[in-house]
Amino acid sequence: MKRMKWMKLALVGVLLVLTGACRLAPSPLPAPLQLGDTVISDAVTWSGEVRIRGTVTVKKTGALTIRPGSRILFERIDDDGDGIGDAELYVEGTLLAQGTAAEPILFSSAADDPRPADWKFIYLDYARKAELRHIIAEYAYSGVQIHFCKASVLDSEFRYNVDGVRFSTVNIEVARNRIHHNTHGIRYEERRGSGSVYQNEIVDNEIGIFVVTRSDDRTLFRDNNIVSRQYNVKLGLDQAGDVTFPHNWWGTSETAAIRATIYDHAADATLGKVRTPEPLPTQYKHSH
């Protein structure tokens, strides 16, 4: 009788140990979702790791939601040999990529030795709805390209790309982002679009802001810190109109020194002028 009791106790003990061990052992991570050329036509949610080898297209009827902490990795493929990776996320429908400060969403190269232009871009083209918040986009040709739609790009980081943030013909809000170590921090063509670009750190890019063409001064850049390696603002060959960037920090408060960071009419008389009224005397300090 006593032996039975001991045996029962031992059995319970073994079971407890086994259960505990199960709890302590790390649960295996889910295998990454592997995607080649893919079309999304209805509601889809991504989480965890997603590896893309090709073009993922979110059609007009599609809605892609990406959960905080997700890692979207693009494989380095270059079938046309132009030196720019072919993998991309192309959105005509809805893209909601909203991470958190603690759990941003990463869009990056899958290569072990990543470099700029390993993958092409997140491309929003006539997108129905596009909200990017707390994302990190790196090693792309363009971290994000936005055309012919309304979009917001907030609290995110764009680094090690050819173009950090690029847009044309949009209604856009770009705020509180850190855009650094790209060839062009922000590159845009208004083409009758408009935008509000404020409280961004646009630093350590070769060119801070590249105004390529057809901009009529309808994109307001204000309260940004813009300090670049070559030029803070450069006008493209066909940008004949003047553009204004009020109330920004340019790395210096001296007028002549600010002028030296700008490529415009002073270098090529066919270009417009860049005006920088009310330059901030010190860096813009974020309240958050």
């Binding site: 363009s142 390529v212 063409t213 066909d238």
Partner: peptide, 15 residues
């Protein structure tokens, strides 16, 4: 016509 303006250069464009 307001929006359908010909792009100066494509969005990655021809190299």
């Amino acid at each position: 016509s307001l929006f359908a303006v010909a792009p100066a250069l494509a969005c990655v464009g021809k190299t």
